[in-house]
C-alpha cells in the first residue's frame, strides 16, 4: 500500500490560515491503514486546527469528511456538494488523491496535509517499511523476492557494492545489505545460478514519463473517458 505521514502541524496551519471554511478530507484506504489520513486522523487534525485557529484569533471553521478512496471518481463524487460549501479543501490522501481531488475542483484551493513516503508493508503495529519503487521492470523472480532497486540504496542490480560491512549496508549498520539477503535467499532456495545473470542497464523510458496504462478489454466495454 501507499504509506504517508502527516506534514508538520505548523506547515498545515500556515497553508490553511487564509481560509474561513475548510473541509478536511480523509481517505479511507492506504493512508487510513498507516494512520496518517483516515477518518480518525481527519477528525483529530480538524480539532487541532480548530483550537489553533481559535488561539490565533482567526474566525475559521473546520469540518471533516472521509471518502473510501480519493483516487477514484465514483468516491470523490460523494464530496461534490460538501466541497461547494467550503473555501478550501485540505486533503489527507496520498499525492495521487490530492491531485485527483484538485482536478475535480479546479476553482477551489486543494491543500495537502500529508507527505507521501513510499509503497510499503505493515511491518508491525505502527511501523511501515518500504518495499517497492514502482520501477516498471520487476526483478523479483531473479533476486529471490528481495528487491535490489528498493532495498539497496544504490539500486545495484548485479551484486553488492564494496561497501557492505559484515552483511550490513554502508549507509547504516542497522540495515542489512540487500545483496547479502538476496544471496542467502537464493542459496536457501537452491537458485544461486540466478546470480550469474548479467542484468543489463534498466530501461527507464517508461518510468521517466507520467505512468499510464490501460486494460484493453475493460476499456472497450466501459470507458467513458478518452
Amino acid at each position: 500500500m501507499i504509506v504517508a505521514e502527516r506534514k508538520p502541524f505548523a506547515e498545515i496551519a500556515q497553508a490553511v490560515a487564509g481560509y474561513r471554511r475548510v473541509l478536511v478530507v480523509g481517505c479511507g484506504t492506504c493512508v487510513a491503514v498507516c494512520l496518517a489520513g483516515g477518518e480518525k486522523e481527519a477528525g483529530i487534525l480538524a480539532a487541532q486546527l480548530d483550537l489553533a485557529g481559535q488561539l490565533a484569533g482567526r474566525q475559521q471553521r473546520f469540518a471533516t469528511a472521509c471518502v473510501e478512496r480519493q483516487c477514484d471518481r465514483e468516491f470523490l463524487s460523494e464530496l461534490d456538494a460538501a466541497a461547494r460549501e467550503h473555501d478550501a479543501l485540505l486533503s489527507l490522501a496520498c499525492g495521487a488523491g490530492v491531485q485527483f481531488l484538485a482536478e475535480r475542483h479546479p476553482t477551489l484551493p486543494v491543500l495537502a496535509g500529508l507527505n507521501t513516503t513510499f509503497i510499503g508493508v505493515n511491518q508491525d503495529v505502527g511501523r511501515w517499511d518500504e518495499r517497492c519503487r514502482a520501477c516498471t521492470d520487476c526483478l523479483l523472480s531473479l533476486t529471490g523476492g528481495v528487491c535490489p532497486v528498493t532495498m539497496c540504496p544504490k539500486g545495484m542490480v548485479n551484486g553488492p557494492c564494496g561497501g557492505a560491512v559484515e552483511g550490513r549496508c554502508e549507509t547504516d549498520p542497522e540495515r542489512d545489505c540487500a545483496w547479502t539477503v538476496i544471496h542467502a535467499r537464493l542459496s536457501d532456495s537452491d537458485r544461486l545460478a540466478n546470480l550469474e545473470v548479467l542484468v543489463p542497464p534498466r530501461d527507464h523510458s517508461r518510468a521517466n514519463l507520467p505512468g499510464r496504462q490501460a486494460h484493453a478489454a475493460y476499456l472497450r466495454r466501459y470507458s467513458s473517458h478518452d
Partner: peptide
C-alpha cells in the same frame, strides 16, 4: 567484505 560470496558474484560479472 563479508559475506564474500555475493562479492564474488559481482567480481565475476
Amino acid at each position: 567484505a563479508r559475506p564474500l560470496a555475493p562479492q564474488l558474484v559481482k567480481l565475476r560479472k
